[in-house]
Nucleic acid binder design. Structure first.
Lengths: 198, 198
DNA sequence: GTGTTACCGTAACAGATGTTACGAACCTTG
DNA sequence: CAAGGTTCGTAACATCTGTTACGGTAACAC
């Protein structure tokens, strides 16, 4: 009974701590992601952080998994609400760009995870797994939007779309005044139109 | 006389040290970029590193500037050798993707600089300046390839092309077996074709 | 050759960082 | 109420990091 309540509390604490990790990653950069900084951002002490996670790497892994889980849930909600496959494709790709303050911050967090994955095989593996899942999702949406395309054509379109949205998110998150939301959306619409997916 | 020789030596040492920075950034990630690691990779001691650079930030700034300078020289060579504006556009964009071991490594280095720029206003400024120069170069090439396009059309095409190539480089550098050079080049050609720039 | 200067390797230092150990407060259980 | 276990804050520890200080050495001027 109480065990369940405690476990729920523990999970909520993990969630709060992981959100603190995101916050630091987006605001200060990965070089300042220390246990003490995480504890301060989460409003607790390093004792709790180390009690919930076995070490710093576990902190990053859980924060990465949570980001993936939230993105997945959001994307599935968007996908389910879209009236047509093509609308779903556009909406799903749009949420991957830096169109809102939230998604712009997520792009910075993503950059932090990317940098952390360099030279860390475990995080690199996680990165690849989540990225492949994302690519597979976009591929499914493209196939639904254009059922008669050959696999090779789907692959190139998927790489172009995922690359462009991710690249745009990176560029915009670091230079917001150069890449307005209108410019980003125009880019997406132009691409979908050029590929025959509008 | 000797002063000139010494200065040349000093610059060559700075270059060697900056290359050590790249190497660590690509191989170990920015979290392991320490003065001692740089000295070890450059085959010298921390005394020389600190003698050539006033501090760690200067190390990153110079390495970033040198990467930009080399990329610029390479791109201008490619551009000058291209027979047509459209060939120049394609070749310049292609060198920005992860098609060779060298450019793949550069994508990892670029990711390290990006992460370092988060939360560091000076490096973020440098990042923006170099990125805007890159965007302006691609825009010039697009205008040369399609002289009658309206500015807005150029802008969206530039964002799509720079974003897609940069995003592809990021994806491929972290997951080489998922993104072959053929796939990347097919993506680029498809995009140029779809935009009417082939 | 001798004094001088710049170069740079060695080593120290203060602060930060990941991690561990310990103990107090709290809750559960008998 | 008492015993025992869980939770988590405090503080210590060893290590690592950026930076500084010092000393030896080689090149140069005369």
């Amino acid at each position: 009974m109480r065990a369940i309540a405690r476990r729920a509390d523990a999970e909520s604490q993990q969630e709060r701590i992981s959100e603190a990790v995101w916050s630091i990653l987006a605001l200060k950069g990965i070089e300042h992601l220390t246990i003490r900084a995480v504890a301060a951002a989460a409003g607790c002490t390093t004792g709790l952080v180390m009690h919930r996670f076995p070490g710093r790497r576990a902190l990053l892994v859980h924060a990465r998994d949570l980001l993936h889980a939230r993105t997945r849930a959001r994307v599935e909600r968007i996908e389910a609400a879209a009236p047509t496959p093509r609308a779903a494709l556009r909406a799903v790709l749009a949420q991957g760009m830096a169109l809102t303050a939230e998604s712009s911050q997520e792009a910075l967090v993503w950059a932090g995870f990317l940098a952390a994955a360099v030279g860390d095989p475990d995080l690199a593996d996680l990165h690849r797994r989540h990225n492949r899942a994302w690519r597979e999702r976009v591929a499914r949406l493209v196939r639904a939007a254009a059922p008669d395309w050959a696999p090779a054509r789907v692959d190139t379109a998927v790489l172009a779309l995922t690359g462009a949205t991710e690249g745009a998110a990176q560029l915009a998150s670091m230079d917001p005044e150069s890449y307005s939301t209108a410019t980003q959306e125009a880019m997406l619409d132009t691409m979908l139109d050029a590929f025959g997916l509008a």
